[in-house]
């Protein structure tokens, strides 16, 4: 446990020390809020600002937790991971530290957006909601940290990882309803969005932040907080269950592949040879 915390602290420190990235990750939410508030402005939805903010916040949690968790690949390439792996520390706690820091940084970023949101019209009726929101963000952070580490450990070089992560995160974000309402998508893409775990994270988080847990199903479906797929209604709770399953699967898979990865073969350069 000490190792998990120490590694988590190390990742947080690293995040804060990388000035350029830090500045951009603070500016980034403003930019997104500005651009997407224009898209959502003339919407049919009751509270467009809150609706949009919740989407941006959770997409940010997704994006950051995935990327931070994959910093592992940089550590492998820089050699630091080798030092970790010859130490008596279990690989499990190394993975744990990575997950924890990802979830924490993701949640902090999401929270930053929510805080900005309060200045531009985001409203909640009870302070409890903010606690539920934070819990939901931590949950979503862990889910996608597992996914990120899975991608990172299955990619052998930093360059490949860059390409793969963009190729996966871009469509996931845009087919989740976080930025663009699903009804604006062509029907084929709508089906793809139904197998996108982020879609369910967005629905769950919106339901919580818009305080709609008690809203009737038909209303939830109209607001894309629940989905009717082939007669089966995915309520926000089922979304949560689905996420839990997806998260557990990838936390498990990534931990296994992390424990098995032969880090001596990971390199920054593309064509570097293994040496005996």
């Amino acid at each position: 446990m000490k190792t998990v915390l120490a590694l988590c602290m190390r990742n947080l420190k690293e995040f804060v020390r990388n000035r350029t990235r830090l500045i951009f990750s603070i500016i980034f939410p403003f930019f997104f809020i500005y651009v997407f508030s224009a898209i959502f402005r003339n919407d049919y939805i009751e509270n467009p600002i809150s609706h949009m903010l919740a989407g941006i916040a959770i997409a940010t949690v997704f994006d950051f937790s995935l990327r931070i968790s994959s910093t592992t690949i940089d550590d492998m390439a820089s050699g630091f991971m080798k030092e970790v792996l010859v130490s008596p520390v279990s690989r499990l706690s190394v993975a744990g530290g990575q997950f924890l820091s990802s979830a924490v940084i993701g949640t902090m970023q999401g929270l930053l957006i929510i805080i900005i949101g309060f200045f531009i019209g985001f409203r909640i009726t009870t302070p409890l909601t903010i606690i539920y929101m934070i819990l939901a963000m931590i949950f979503v952070g862990f889910v996608f940290a597992g996914f990120g580490l899975f991608l990172a450990t299955n990619t052998k070089s930093t360059q490949t990882f860059q390409v793969i992560s963009v190729a996966i995160t871009m469509p996931m974000t845009f087919l989740s309803g976080a930025y663009i309402p699903l009804e604006h998508l062509p029907p084929t893409l709508t089906y793809i969005s139904y197998i996108n775990p982020l879609t369910y994270a967005v629905a769950l988080f919106r339901t919580i932040s818009l305080e709609r847990l008690a809203t009737p199903q038909s209303q939830l479906i109209a607001e894309e907080l629940a989905f009717e797929i082939g007669g089966f209604v995915v309520t926000p709770w089922i979304s949560a269950l689905f996420l839990l399953g997806f998260g557990a699967l990838f936390l498990l898979l990534s931990t296994i592949s992390f424990a098995r990865t032969d880090f001596s073969k990971v390199s920054r350069g593309a064509g570097e040879q293994i040496d005996w």
């Binding site: 190390r10 420190k13 690293e14 050699g79 030092e83």
Partner: peptide
């Protein structure tokens, strides 16, 4: 190790 395994950012 032959190649540095220090955590350069720390």
């Amino acid at each position: 190790f032959q190649d540095s395994t220090l955590d350069k950012k720390m």
